[in-house]
C-alpha cells in the first residue's frame, strides 16, 4: 500500500509561517482553525564556566506540523463512528464529513493537535494532505509555498530516497514517535532536542492554539 509522508527540514525553516498561511488561504480557514502550525520551541539557561563566567546555552527553533497521517493514528483509534479513517490508497488520514458527529474525541487524542471540530461545518476538519492536488500530480500547497524549501511530500519511499539523512519525527516539541508512528521525516537543526530528552517549552502558545 502506498503511504504518503511529509518531510520537514529544521535546518532551513526560519519560522516564517508561509506554509501555515498558504494553507489557510487555500482552504479559506477562519482565524481559529489552522491545518498546519509552526511551533516555536525554545529553552536553555545560563551556566557558570570554569573561569567564573556565565555562559548562555539558550536555543530556539521552529517545527512546522500538520497531520502526520500516522501509521497508528490516535484519532482513528478513538473515533466512535469510523468517520476518521485511513485512506486505503495513500494512507492519508481523512474525515468522512457525512459520518462525523463532531464529538471532538479525535481532537483530544491526537498528540499533534491536528484535528479540530468546526461547529459551523458540523464536523471535524484537518489536513488531508491536499488529497485533490496530490491526485492531480501536485504537491500540497504548504510544500509549494515554502520559500526555503523546508517542506516536501511524497510516498514514504520517495521521502527516504530524497532525504536520506532524515529520520521519522522524534524531536521536541513533538511526542515520541512510538505513540502514533507519524509519517513525518525530519532533518533536525543542530539545536533540536530528542522528544524524550526535551527541556524546552513551546514559546508561541497563543499562535498555535
Amino acid at each position: 500500500m502506498t503511504q504518503y509522508a511529509f518531510y520537514f527540514n529544521g535546518k532551513r525553516c526560519t519560522g516564517c509561517k508561509t506554509c501555515e498561511l498558504a494553507c489557510k488561504d487555500r482552504y479559506d480557514l477562519t482565524p481559529e482553525i489552522s491545518y498546519r502550525k509552526v511551533f516555536e520551541y525554545g529553552g536553555g539557561d545560563w551556566t557558570k564556566d570554569a573561569d567564573g563566567f556565565y555562559v548562555p546555552d539558550v536555543f530556539t527553533y521552529y517545527v512546522s506540523v500538520a497531520c502526520n497521517h500516522c501509521d497508528d493514528p490516535a484519532c482513528t483509534k478513538v473515533c466512535p463512528t469510523g468517520a476518521m479513517h485511513k485512506d486505503a490508497d495513500g494512507g492519508l488520514v481523512l474525515v468522512d464529513a457525512d459520518r462525523c458527529i463532531g464529538c471532538g474525541y479525535c481532537h483530544m487524542a491526537c498528540p499533534y493537535n491536528a484535528p479540530k471540530v468546526d461547529r459551523e461545518k458540523g464536523h471535524t476538519v484537518k489536513c488531508d494532505g491536499c488529497a485533490e492536488r496530490v491526485a492531480a500530480g501536485q504537491k500540497p500547497i504548504c510544500v509549494e509555498a515554502c520559500p526555503l524549501r523546508a517542506l516536501d511530500f511524497g510516498t514514504k519511499e520517495e521521502m527516504e530516497q530524497a532525504h536520506g539523512d532524515s529520520q521519522v519525527a522524534d524531536i521536541a516539541p513533538l511526542p515520541q514517535k512510538e505513540y502514533t508512528h507519524p509519517n513525518l521525516y525530519v532533518d533536525p537543526c543542530k539545536h533540536a532536542q530528542m522528544a524524550n530528552e526535551a527541556t524546552g517549552k513551546v514559546a508561541n502558545i497563543l499562535e498555535v492554539m
Partner: peptide, 25 residues
C-alpha cells in the same frame, strides 16, 4: 448538544469494541 452534528449521533455505535466512546454510548 455537545456534538457538532447531533443528528448523526446514531453513527456513534459504529466503533463498538474499538472506541471507548462507542462503548460508553
Amino acid at each position: 448538544f455537545h456534538l457538532a452534528s447531533p443528528f448523526h449521533a446514531f453513527a456513534a455505535f459504529t466503533g463498538l469494541g474499538t472506541s471507548p466512546l462507542s462503548n460508553e454510548v
